[in-house]
Computed example of a mutant assay.
Amino acid sequence: MDNVYHLDLNSKNIQGAKIALLPGDPFRSQIIAESISKTYGTGNERLAWKREYCSYLTEVSGQKILITSTGIGGPSASIAVDELAQLGIQTFIRVGTSGAIQEYIDIGDVIITTGAVRLDGASTHYAPIEYPAVANHEIIYSLIEGAKYSRIKYHVGITASSDTFYQGEERSDSFRKYTLRKFQGITKELQSLNVLNYEMEASTVLTLTASMGLKGGCITGVVNKRGMEKITEQCLKTGETHLIKAAIASLKYLTDLSG
């Protein structure tokens, strides 16, 4: 049985898994897999690690759960979603980190995305820009219940997904110290439109899954906020810990719905 090219997985070794969690960081795949094993009393196994794609297999409520990292940005995320769909995965949840742009959102909060502003390019190769990048309602429900159960402060709303970390998010700490005119003022505009956060993969994941008749969702942990450009080690740890806790708790609700 041939493996898909980039992920180095095949339909046999994922053992019938239909749900995939998609962290960006490949090292987060192991952390999530081990946390699921500890929470639900099941084992885990690393299946492959090729380039930015690190995959583990575990189990929740009798259902196999695949954890596959996507790397950074829409292009690599699109490869992960497409190849996993080829293998039979039907439900995709991005589990990542994010920067908040609304003042009332704090470090360590989690953001559950209902839809994404498509500031990326990869998603346009799957659907025209007019096509909405929307999350599946069952996944949104499960993520909300997981955050509630974990007693983690959460926010539900719109995310902006940028292809670039510095320019597209109008950051002031880039090398060039200059933002192209098309991005100047974009943060203020997004804030006025009640967009909650910046990240880099949600619009791609949600556009691909919705357009292919699959289920997609996104939960991110806040590790910095506008006006605090530097991401400290403590902020990253807090955001990741809360993110993983809420995401793992949501699996019980998600598997109940899909089971």
Rank of each mutant, 00 (worst) to 15 (best):
Y198I: 07
Q191F: 09
S192C: 05
A247R: 10
G74Q: 09
D82E: 13
K215W: 15
N3V: 08
A20C: 14
T91R: 02
D8S: 13
I231N: 04
G96E: 01
N13A: 00
I129M: 11
T187I: 15
R94S: 15
T68E: 02
A247F: 04
P128M: 15
Q15W: 08
S37V: 01
T68W: 00
D109K: 02
H6V: 02
S11D: 09
I32S: 03
T97A: 07
I144A: 10
E201I: 06
G108D: 03
S211V: 10
D120M: 06
S69Q: 10
G213Y: 01
A246H: 08
Y154C: 13
I65A: 00
P132V: 04
L119S: 13
N224W: 02
S11I: 12
I186S: 03
H125R: 07
H242Y: 14
K230D: 14
S123F: 02
V195A: 01
I248L: 03
G115I: 07
G115M: 05
K237P: 03
E201S: 06
P128H: 14
G213T: 03
H242A: 08
I93D: 09
Q30S: 11
V134G: 00
H155F: 11
V223H: 10
V110I: 12
A17D: 00
P75C: 03
G99V: 11
G259D: 11
R94T: 14
E169C: 14
T187E: 13
I19S: 06
D25C: 14
S61G: 07
T255M: 06
A116N: 05
D109E: 04
C218V: 14
G227L: 03
G99R: 11
A202Q: 06
Y104C: 04
K245L: 10
L119R: 09
T241S: 14
S172C: 07
V95H: 00
L236F: 12
F92L: 05
A85Q: 11
C218N: 15
A33G: 01
L66Q: 04
I129V: 10
T70I: 00
T42V: 03
L119I: 13
G71D: 02
T159H: 13
G146H: 02
Y5A: 08
I31N: 09
G157I: 00
G16V: 05
S150P: 02
G168D: 12
L84F: 04
H6R: 02
T39P: 01
G99T: 12
G217F: 07
I112R: 05
D25P: 09
E189A: 12
L251H: 08
K18V: 15
Y104N: 15
Y166G: 00
S211D: 07
L254Y: 06
G73K: 06
Q63L: 09
N44W: 11
L190R: 02
T204P: 02
Q184R: 15
G157T: 00
E34N: 09
L119K: 11
S250G: 01
L180G: 15
E145K: 11
Q63P: 00
F92M: 08
A77H: 01
A202W: 08
E240F: 04
D163W: 06
